[in-house]
């Protein structure tokens, strides 16, 4: 081996040491410290249960109310968390998550304890406007069928609007970025209509579509189509020319460049646009359901509020939080997967 080969070998080893990380094992037993830390949420549940059993109820107004769902709820929570706990003792990635969230889960139960104390136990927060956690769970269970139907209705609107809006946004974004003629006609539309909230078109949508559901669909569509078109077209227009020229000298056709250079290059922007689309369409959907719809979660909130059933109002709000947070989490997981090639990606 010549001296150059030796140097080359050394450089190569150095690169490998620097850039190829060793994989950490997935199955690994927890340290005592982690095992104890992950017990904290049980303490939160215990505090809530003790408070619930030991303190007397002030006379619940306006009707006598037997609080009987909170203890079973805590029981279910304890069983579910116990499952997580057992797996976390051995599965490293899961353990990192569970250990990280343990104090937050603890605080979560403390919050409900406080809510119970201020409502059922002392009456500081007035019933029926602020119900106890027990009442909320009770209403959720009692009305789960209507709530589920409204959730399905809302989600159907949301998803159909999103699917149409996002796919058309991708197409029109690419078209605007690549074809000057399309850009000429669509760009002013984006600039004028884009920044305006989709909601202000509601009166027109109602008139045009004669149906509140179609109007909701249109609002969701607009809320998701706009950010995608805008972000993709600007990403394509601002692409580093070098990336395209490189592809040209490698023998790529125009069409191949659009699909394999321009589109992947705009993925970071698409990911941001998806986040905007999702949050805007939640708003658009909720607002359309408030005015004139006959189904949907937001409609149900309005309806039960008029009926003064605040337990159910809070239950539906809880359901909406869970649904929107889950959708957003899925969206971000998808984004992280899409952007796995990006350096120093800010994780959500």
């Amino acid at each position: 081996m010549s001296s150059k080969d030796v140097i080359r070998e050394e450089l190569h080893k150095e690169e490998e040491r620097l850039f190829i990380k060793e994989k950490e094992p997935i199955i690994e037993r927890a340290s005592l410290r982690d095992a104890l830390k992950m017990l904290v949420p049980f303490a939160g549940m215990a505090i809530s249960a003790i408070e619930f059993v030991s303190l007397p109820q002030v006379h619940p107004l306006p009707v006598q109310y037997h609080a009987e769902t909170w203890l079973p709820t805590l029981g279910v929570c304890a069983v579910v968390y116990a499952l997580f706990y057992v797996f976390s003792l051995f599965v490293r990635p899961l353990r990192q998550k569970v250990a990280h969230f343990s104090w937050l889960i603890f605080a979560f139960f403390c919050f409900f304890t406080l809510q119970d104390f201020l409502t059922l136990r002392t009456g500081t927060l007035k019933l029926p406007f602020i119900p106890s956690p027990d009442k909320i769970v009770h209403e959720l269970i009692a009305n789960w069928d209507t709530i589920a139907m409204d959730a399905v209705s809302s989600m159907t609107t949301l998803f159909s609007g999103l699917v149409i809006g996002i796919s058309m946004g991708i197409v029109s974004g690419i078209a605007c970025g690549c074809v000057r003629l399309v850009d000429y006609w669509i760009n002013p539309l984006l600039k004028i209509i884009g920044p305006v909230p989709a909601l202000i078109w509601m009166p027109i949508f109602f008139v045009v579509f004669h149906s509140s559901n179609a109007a909701a669909l249109a609002a969701v569509f607009l809320a998701s189509w706009f950010p995608l078109t805008l972000m993709i077209s600007s990403a394509i227009k601002n692409i580093d020319k070098g990336l395209i020229e490189r592809a040209e000298t490698l023998g790529a056709s125009k069409f191949y460049i659009i699909l394999h250079v321009m589109l992947p290059n705009s993925i970071p922007h698409i990911a941001n646009a998806l986040f905007m689309a999702l949050s805007h369409s939640f708003g658009a959907m909720s607002a359309t359901e408030l005015c004139g719809a006959t189904s949907g979660l937001m409609f149900r909130i309005q309806y039960t509020r008029v009926m003064a059933n605040y337990g159910e109002v809070f239950a539906i709000i809880g359901v909406m939080i869970v649904i929107f947070a889950t959708l957003t989490a899925i969206m971000f997981a998808f984004r992280n997967w899409l952007l796995r090639w990006q350096k120093g990606l800010a994780r959500w």
């Binding site: 090639w341 990006q342 350096k343």
Partner: peptide, 10 residues
């Protein structure tokens, strides 16, 4: 090219 801008997603 002078700038070795590889395709970062590949």
């Amino acid at each position: 090219f002078q700038e070795t801008n590889l395709y970062p997603w590949l």
